[in-house]
Amino acid sequence: MTVLEIQRYLPESDQAPRWQRYEVEGEPAWSLIDALGYIKDHVDPTLAWRASCRMGMCGSCGVLVDGVPRLGCEVFLRDLPDRPARIAPLAHLPVERDLMVDTEGYLRRLRAVEPWLQPSDADPVGPVGERLQTPAQQAKYLETAQCIGCMLCYAACPQVAVNEPFLGPAALAAAHRYLSDSRDHGHARRGSVQGLQGVWGCTLVGTCSEACPKGVDPAAAIQREKVRGALSFVPSLFVRGEDD
């Protein structure tokens, strides 16, 4: 049997979040999401969370497991400690109900970096009209293109907690993804990611990259944008940019 202590918050009846203990008759191969389903089915139908794909792709099910941001579908009962595990909503984001946190703030920040390709008709095209891009060119942005928007990095980032305008790791990684794409010419986007709300708000603790379940490494993306920003002020005679 697995014991979970889950942070509950019902906005219509709770003044503040509270902890509730649940016992789950589950299998070792069950994910945390399976366990939450068991609770809803058999114990308490009011428990609320988000989840869908159960394969780490839809980004719905981020929670704190003993204080660590994780995808619920990638935490298995066999991996939980013998003592009760504490399950809470992601930190640094407004709690809507139980394990659900506000997604709007992340989407507003994401949109602020204009995360869409801004191409040029002058780019060379291939046989079916596709813009040519070699695997080496693609490798410059492919890692950051894996972001599933799960917001675990926001829960891990100390700056998100104290600097409200800060765009945060995932949005800045998205900016880097497009700025590093050989097909993209949206250089105006560079302005929005510089400054204290952008990459210069990052204090380089790297917790975002540790938290990322998809290997995106937002911390490295942010550092590369800092370099790109700094280089744009230095005459190219002396320093050569990494993305010429």
Partner: peptide
């Protein structure tokens, strides 16, 4: 054209 990172051949074709 809208940015989808289709896997590529060495010469850059899809």
């Amino acid at each position: 054209h809208h940015g989808c990172p289709w896997s590529r051949e060495p010469d850059g074709r899809v």
